[in-house]
Each structure stands twice: as structure tokens, then as C-alpha cells.
């Protein structure tokens, strides 16, 4: 048999290699090096972290390829980059750069208010956000090889990530307790492809790796999401918007590994300096919420 590339197996497989790890947002090659040295399993290369995107307002787009290339040249770990929802040309550009994963992300301003990218068209695997099981399975149906909760990016408030993780897990538990004949109606109700609903029920989990994202700012937040059953965590603004990024990055990496050992969590949480300035999600007007982007 000849060598096969860009198969579903290798696309989903890279996400499996990231399990139990922390993916960090970085805006410069120097940040990327700090992240790699702290033990990040991958970096997300972008021009502004979500907290700044939120503060600056305006249209948020794919980052300058020059920045992404420089970050790819700096670190040996996988490099991810974001495209706007539905913006398949930004995705073609990132594919030509050879990034390792593309995040079709609600953190950027959506380019299409009805359709996501047909991710099966690409050799590079995609990660997408979700708030519930239906959204997760629609994205997987479109070709996403990895899922993350949306949370509420750039807030430092973990409440939405918790809500989204609990919602997905709760719906999977409900699905597993359902008699077979109810599956089709359930698929219709949540707007998900029937075959993926069936597969999820058989596996007792999403068919792809599922990380937490959106509002994780402390080692305890990472531990909380891991104990809730996610496979790993993304930390966006939480690291480089804090007082001592290198120290906090290392602490969150350790917390993600030793998530069920409170003594280690206590040890790594000591003297971390100032966390990022948080913004309570309930104080944010609905029009400024990011997680509701995506369909």
C-alpha cells in the first residue's frame, strides 16, 4: 500500500497527541518560546489575545502570515492559527503556510453568518468551538478533527467554559440512557448528524478530542476543567495578561497533568503573582458576547 496523507486518522491523531496538555495563545515569537519552555504542547499564533480583541473592538481577522511564519520558525511544538468562521480563503492561506492546526474561531469576527467552512476540503486539521453537543457534532460533521468549549474568551471568567463542558457531558449521558428508537428525534432536536449521534452514544464521548477553552486563568481553573472530563485546556489571555507569564504558564501545565492531586495544585498555585484582570461574564452586554457566534 502507498503512503496516505491527510487522512481522518492523522488529523484526529495529532489532537490525541495534545491530550493532557496546555495550548497557549502567543502574539510574538518571544511569547512562543516562553510557552514552549514552560511545557506547552502547542501554541496558538495570533496578533492580539482575546482580552485585547475585546477591548479594542472593530473587526478581528486572521493574523499577518509573517507573524505566524516567525512563530513557526521559533518553536518545535505544533503551531495553530485562527481564521474567521466561514472564511475559507483565510484557511487556504494558513494551509499554504503549513500551520499544524486551524482554529475556525468565534473569537474573530465571523465572515459568514450561516455557514462554517467545509473542513473536509483541507489537508490541515481544524479545531472548532462548541457550547453543546449539537454544535460539536455539526462541526465534526463539517470535518473538525478536534473540539473545544467556547467558554467566553478574554474574560478570565471560567463560568461559561464550565457551562459548555457540563452541557456536552450531560447531553452525552442523556444519549447513553436513551432507547434506540429515540435517537433520530434526539438528532433532530439538537440539529446533529444521526450517524455522529449514534457514534457518540456508542463511544460514551465525543468522537474527537475535546479541550476546554474560554476564561481559564489559573491552575485551579485548569484542574476544574480536567476534573469535569475534558482532554486538555487552551489558555488564551490568562497567561500573557498576568503578572508573571512564565511562572503561571508552568503552573498551569503542571496543574493540567496533576489535576486530581490537590497537594500539587496547592503547591503550583503559590506566589504566582497577579492573575489577568478578570471581567465577569454577567456584566458584559449580550451584544458583546463572543460564544453566541457560530451556527
Amino acid at each position: 500500500m502507498e503512503q496516505q496523507v491527510a487522512t481522518e486518522k492523522v488529523k484526529r491523531g495529532l489532537a490525541q497527541m495534545l491530550k493532557g496538555g496546555v495550548i497557549m495563545d502567543v502574539v510574538t515569537p518571544e511569547h512562543a518560546k516562553i510557552a514552549e519552555d514552560a511545557g506547552a504542547v502547542a501554541v496558538m499564533a495570533l496578533e492580539r489575545v482575546p482580552a485585547d480583541i475585546r477591548a479594542d473592538g472593530g473587526v478581528a481577522r486572521m493574523s499577518d502570515p509573517e507573524l505566524i511564519i516567525k512563530i513557526m520558525e521559533t518553536v518545535s511544538i505544533p503551531v495553530m492559527a485562527k481564521v474567521r468562521i466561514g472564511h475559507f480563503v483565510e484557511a487556504q492561506i494558513l494551509e499554504s503556510l503549513g500551520v499544524d492546526y486551524i482554529d475556525e474561531s468565534e473569537v474573530l469576527t465571523p465572515a459568514d453568518e450561516e455557514h462554517h467552512i467545509n473542513k473536509h476540503d483541507f489537508k490541515i486539521p481544524f479545531v472548532c468551538g462548541c457550547r453543546n453537543l449539537g454544535e460539536a457534532l455539526r462541526r465534526i460533521g463539517e470535518g473538525a478533527a478536534m473540539i473545544r468549549t467556547k467558554g467566553e474568551a478574554g474574560t478570565g471568567d471560567v463560568v461559561e467554559a464550565v457551562r459548555h463542558a457540563r452541557t456536552v457531558m450531560g447531553e452525552i449521558r442523556r444519549l447513553q440512557n436513551m432507547p434506540e428508537e429515540e435517537l433520530m428525534s434526539f438528532a433532530k432536536e439538537i440539529g446533529a448528524p444521526y450517524n455522529l449521534v449514534k457514534e457518540t452514544r456508542e463511544l460514551g464521548r465525543l468522537p474527537v478530542v475535546n479541550f476546554a477553552a474560554g476564561g481559564i486563568a489559573t491552575p485551579a481553573d485548569a484542574g476544574l476543567m480536567m476534573q469535569l472530563g475534558v482532554d486538555g485546556v487552551f489558555v488564551g489571555s490568562g497567561i500573557f495578561k498576568s503578572g508573571d507569564p512564565a511562572k503561571r504558564a508552568k503552573a498551569i501545565v503542571k496543574a493540567t497533568t496533576h489535576y486530581n492531586d490537590p497537594a500539587i495544585l496547592a503547591e503550583v498555585s503559590r506566589n504566582l503573582g497577579e492573575p489577568m484582570v478578570g471581567r465577569q461574564v454577567t456584566d458584559i452586554p449580550e451584544s458583546e458576547l463572543i460564544a453566541s457566534r457560530g451556527w
Binding site: M1, V5, V10, G98, V99, I124, P125
Partner: peptide, 27 residues
């Protein structure tokens, strides 16, 4: 290379059980 070059291939691994007749699919 990078992720885009990740691949699957059949290998001949005679030291495995049935290795003489069944190739081993490696990721």
C-alpha cells in the same frame, strides 16, 4: 515535516504474529 506531512503506511513486520502474511498498518 509538519502535520500536513503526517501519514499512514503498511509495513512488513515479520517479527509480529502473522507478520509474514499480514502487513502492519502504521500511523
Amino acid at each position: 515535516g509538519r502535520q500536513v506531512d503526517s501519514f499512514e503506511i503498511d509495513l512488513q513486520a515479520p517479527f509480529l504474529e502473522y507478520g509474514e502474511s499480514q502487513p502492519y498498518h502504521a500511523v
